[in-house]
Design a binder for these strands. Sequence first.
DNA 1: AAATCGGGGTA
DNA 2: TACCCAGATTT
Length: 379
Amino acid sequence: MKTRQELIETYPISWSQTKIKAFRKALLNWYDQMGRSLPWRENQDPYSIWVSEIMLQQTQVKTVIPYYQRFMTTLPNVAALAKASEEQILSLWQGLGYYSRVRNMQTAAQEIVTNFDGQFPQTKAELLTLKGIGDYTAAAIASMAFGQVEPALDGNLIRIVTRLFEIDHDVTKAKTKQELLGILYQLIDPDRPGDFNQAMMDLGATVMTPDNLNINASPLKEFDLSYQHGTAKNYPNKPKKKKSKSQHFLAYYISNEKGQWLMRQHQEGELLQGLWHYPMVEADLVIEAASQDELSQPFIEKYHVLEGQADRLNLAVRGHVKHVFSHRIWQVDILEGTWPKDLPLGDNLEWVDLDHLSDHPHSSLQEKMYQYNFDLGEE
DNA sequence: AAATCGGGGTA
DNA sequence: TACCCAGATTT
């Protein structure tokens, strides 16, 4: 990673100091009038900013706000987060996705307590040592909470800068990000670095959007080559994503006479680690390993809970749910069955009822599978 | 450098 | 559908 000075020398821009100052003024004047009012902007507390930045990774502002409010009320400071239970932090994150974010955040909270005496580190370099804080988030916290002159290069800034200078390099490449960072070190306002970053993000989110809807309202029009040439839609240059693979799963909705249902906690190495779902298994294993009337055989092998008892579950297909991840698609058949009273449970399996649902955080996929049952039940 | 990791909102 | 969203970590 090159230093700030090396980046500036490697990627100099042709603008005069006068033009650069005019750019900063146009941007910050717009921000002072049109900037969004958001919960985490009520103060400059680094913890508040940190929590919001982690939640906002690959997640839209509108989605984050209610999660942020609840998280800050429940775990209002670093010490509280460091001490919280796994169930609690996952429950606070339930439905938000990318669950390693909150696990990493708790690890970082513990690092702050032990390595930094409970005080938030103030430089980008120190922030980068914390788990879950990468180049963007380190710069965001350093600038917004501590006034450090560090550009926070997120998707908004990538889009704006590539348009301003008509940079057509592939923005998924590390070298292109270095180039954009070098340019931004020259543009960023040293007197208001945090506001500069947030102004750029607000502008990207509301005016200079991917679909380019309100480009005429941009305060940066006169600085924007893509606007002057009508080429904004070409930026940023990003290769197309590969199609995600579809996988077929079976989920087992199994109840007992107490009105409880069976759930299994996903283990390390599995998707949705730590979260609770109906026990699930890939249907391929079923096809390979069992005949048509022994659908539960792979379930037996995988979880060792039903050995020799497959025919006692009275399994029947109840419904189907589709769930889309960023990198794969799950088609899930739900099989319903009942549990023999004398059969013990295997590892990672528990009986759960409504009173204990909050102790068993689950994904949106599981939420859909619940909903499917409720919908059917009302018919 | 490329793959992994959620989920929701749009066109 | 396909793309985007205040990305970071692992392979």
